[in-house]
Each structure stands twice: as C-alpha cells, then as structure tokens.
Amino acid sequence: MIDPRIKLRHLVCFLEVARLKSVVNAAELLNISQPAVSKTIQELEQLLGGSLFDRSKRKLFLTPFGEVFNRYASTSLAALRQGIDVARGTHEATIVRVGALPTVSARILPDAVEAFTAAGTGVHTRVVTGPNDYLLSLLRTGDVDFVIGRMAEPEAMVGLSFEHLYSERVVMVVRPGHPLLGERQFELPMIENYQTLLPTPNSVIRNLVDRLLLAHGITQLRDEIETVSNAFGRAYIRRTDAIWIISEGVVAVDVAEGQLALLPVDTSETTGPVGLTTRTDTASTLAAGSLQQAVRDAAARLR
C-alpha cells in the first residue's frame, strides 16, 4: 500500500518546484504562500525518508534521490490526469497538446496541424513552445501529449522515447546586403567584429554552437546577445549588422524568401536529430497518434 499520508498536493507541489527550480515561482503558479510550499516539500521529504532537493545553490536542483522520485511521480500524475480526462469526457480529452521547439514550430508543424485539422475530427490542437528542458518537464507531468524537437541528452531521456524524423544543422544568418556577404574569402573568425545573437545556455543547441566556435579559435565574441525569441531575432538582424546563430528550421522560410541570408560557413558538425519524444509508460491517444502521423508526413517531405 502507498503511504496514505502522501497526498496529491504533495506530488503536485513537488513537481512544480522541480520543474521551475524555485519555491517562489511554484508558490505563485499554485496560488499558495511560499511557506506553504516549503512546508509541503519538507513533509514529503520526511514521509519518503530522503532529501529531494539540493538547497546549496540559488536555484533548487533535484538530488539523485529526487531525480528517481520525480521520474515516477511525474509519469503517475500524467497517467492519472489522462484517465480522469477520458473517463469524464471533458474538453481536455478533445485537445491534443504538443510541445514544440521553435525550429519545428516554423518548419514542419504548420503543415502537420493544417493536415490534421483538415480531417474535421473536431479535435483541437494546443501548441506550447519553449526551451527543451521546459517542454520535457511538461511531457513528464502530462501537460503535453508529446514533444517535437532535438533529442535531449541521454540523462534527460530516462522514461522517454525518441523517434528520429530528420536531421538539422545550426546556421548563421544575416540581413541581405550584410558586409560579410561581400567577402571574397569568408572565414569564420570574421564574425568577431560583429554583434552576435546566441541561443541561451540552457538551450539544446548551445553546446554545439560553443564547440563550433571554439574549433575555429573564436573565444571572444563582441557584445553577445542571448535569446530564444524568434520574433526578436528576426527583427534585430534585419535592422542591424548582427549575426544570428540559430537552428536552420527557424529561419528556413526566411532564407527561401530572401528575407535573410546564410553566411557561407560549413556547420555540418552541428547536425543533430530532430524527432518525436513521448513517454514510454503511457500510450498515446488516438487523436495524439493522428497528429504524430501528420508530423511524420510533413517531416518526410523535407527529405
């Protein structure tokens, strides 16, 4: 038997603190006081007999014990939510919730959603975007049905399954007429003279970008701007001489339409798999499976 002293509020509170890495933010989201969140976590730790969070840093990080508990608590809550939705026949059961990295939101998801909704099933689509770790946390708690994006690091894929759809590289884009486009012999270190837009440190492609720059001896970029906002990136480089380092899928349409231009640099070493990530312990609903197939079809047309 499960210890009857462990309540649903303990699990929900724990999962939100683990996802947000903050008692303050979890309290705001759950609409309860910070002391109440702290007390709930402490109660849960006493009931489980172990420390769930490392409190030695500014942000809260899961201990190894907490990582194990998080894996099972999140999938259990996700299964419970799905069961309640289906049993009640609620509006939530008629919605397919997909988490999508910006690269697929611009490249394959529009075609997939158009094909999915054209079938006239009456099922609605909810698209959530954000950093990879955020989307995976939503997947674990059942707040999205599946995630489309780059494959995460192995330690983040425990309890999850990845289906490869296509591969994608990181590119460097500038406005048309940028001075570097006129260089007869372009070399990557030339970008050091220009402002650079980079993905944030927690983004799935940041390590790839850092390794690429380091391999070419670039250690000191001028006035870096870190952003995951596609709207800001597009607007900023169109009005400045800045260079945007971003996943190809985010800017593929802009480049094809001549709104942006690629710098002539070989970034093949940044190529990585893009695909579907799902939970291994929970079967997809019929509607979610249909949208996944529409995504597969849209991705196949890229090849």
Rank of each mutant, 00 (worst) to 15 (best):
I6T: 02
K7H: 06
C13N: 08
L20R: 13
S22V: 07
V23R: 12
V23A: 05
V24L: 12
N25S: 12
E28R: 10
L29G: 02
S33R: 09
P35T: 09
P35V: 05
V37W: 09
S38E: 15
S38V: 11
K39E: 14
T40M: 06
Q42E: 14
E43K: 12
E43M: 13
L47K: 11
L47W: 14
L48K: 15
L52W: 13
L52N: 02
D54V: 10
E67N: 03
V68S: 08
A73Y: 08
T75N: 03
R81L: 08
G83L: 07
A87F: 10
E92L: 14
A93R: 11
V96W: 06
V96D: 10
R97P: 07
G99M: 02
T103D: 11
T103V: 06
S105W: 00
A106E: 08
A106W: 13
I108P: 05
D111K: 06
E114S: 13
F116S: 08
G120L: 03
V127S: 11
T129H: 04
G130V: 08
N132Q: 11
L138E: 10
L139W: 10
G142W: 08
D143Q: 10
D145G: 01
D145A: 02
F146T: 10
F146N: 06
F146Q: 06
R150G: 14
M151E: 14
A152N: 08
A156N: 13
M157K: 02
M157Y: 04
V158I: 01
F162W: 01
L165A: 04
E168T: 11
R169T: 06
M172F: 03
R175H: 01
G177L: 00
H178Y: 01
P179R: 00
P179G: 00
L180H: 03
G182M: 07
E183R: 00
P189F: 05
E192H: 00
E192D: 01
N193D: 08
Q195E: 13
N202A: 12
V204K: 09
I205C: 04
N207E: 09
N207G: 12
L208H: 14
A215C: 04
G217P: 10
E226S: 09
T227L: 05
F232P: 08
G233L: 07
R234C: 00
A235M: 02
A235F: 00
Y236V: 04
I237T: 01
R238C: 01
R238D: 00
I243M: 01
E248K: 02
G249M: 15
G249S: 14
G249Q: 12
V250I: 14
A252C: 03
V253C: 13
V255F: 04
A256H: 02
A256R: 07
D266Y: 06
E269V: 12
G272Y: 01
P273K: 04
G275C: 08
R279Y: 02
T280Q: 15
T285I: 03
L286N: 11
A288G: 09
S290C: 09
S290I: 01
L291G: 07
Q292S: 15
A298M: 02
L302N: 13
